[in-house]
Simulated scan of single mutants.
Amino acid sequence: MLRFFAGPMGAGKSTLALQMAYNYRSAGREGVLLTGPSRDGRMSSRLGVAEDAVQITESSDLVGVLMGSSFAVVDEAQFLTPRQVEQLAAVVDRAGVAVDCFGLLTDFRSHLFPGSGRLVELADEVNRLQADVFCWCGAPGLINARIEGGRVARSGAQVQVGDIGSTYRVLCRQHWAYGITEKGRS
């Protein structure tokens, strides 16, 4: 089964991914942890739990990486290419590998990441994580806003990795739309 678990920053995606890997191993299964380019080969949670993982690049062949595994847990799945998502689906269908993907659904402009979009199209199951994440106003946080110079960014590269001078903050749809990053500021 190919499953996709999506949520905004702070929703517990990496924590759940690490728990899922632990549960598979506890059941005697052998598998692979995969993570995107921003994690330097580590799958880590804000809660302090971390494990080594295979770092995926745009040129990674996931069929080759996953052959012989019974499961794969993929963190930062939004960074997968559509072709890599198709490779995951093929490994599920042809080799019976259980694949659980965790990632952001949309970018700072509220547009689907290509990898996330393809997962929504191909996954057997798509789940929105239900851990509560809040905007500064207390409303549900839905959008991962990129903040540049104290303002909500509306353009720029979809993916920025490393120290880029930007920060990210989860905002409700209304405050993202109006560009209000905190109380008393617009």
Rank of each mutant, 00 (worst) to 15 (best):
S116C: 02
T81H: 02
S116K: 00
G12I: 03
G103C: 06
P82N: 09
D52I: 02
A95S: 13
N23M: 12
G36P: 07
A123P: 03
R39S: 15
P37I: 05
S186M: 01
K183Q: 13
G150T: 11
S186I: 02
M9I: 04
G103L: 07
L34H: 10
A17H: 13
Q160H: 03
G156H: 09
R25W: 06
W136H: 13
E148P: 00
R42D: 11
D61R: 13
G31F: 01
T167I: 09
Q19H: 06
S14P: 05
D107N: 14
G68I: 07
Q78L: 05
L34Q: 09
R118H: 10
I56E: 15
A157I: 03
I180G: 07
T15K: 03
R83C: 01
A72W: 09
Q19N: 06
D100K: 00
A145M: 04
E58P: 06
C101D: 14
R151W: 03
W136D: 14
L142K: 13
R29A: 12
P114G: 09
D100M: 01
G10F: 07
V91R: 06
M20R: 15
R185E: 03
T57A: 13
D75E: 14
Q158P: 02
L122W: 01
V99E: 15
A77F: 08
Y22S: 15
F5I: 07
F113R: 07
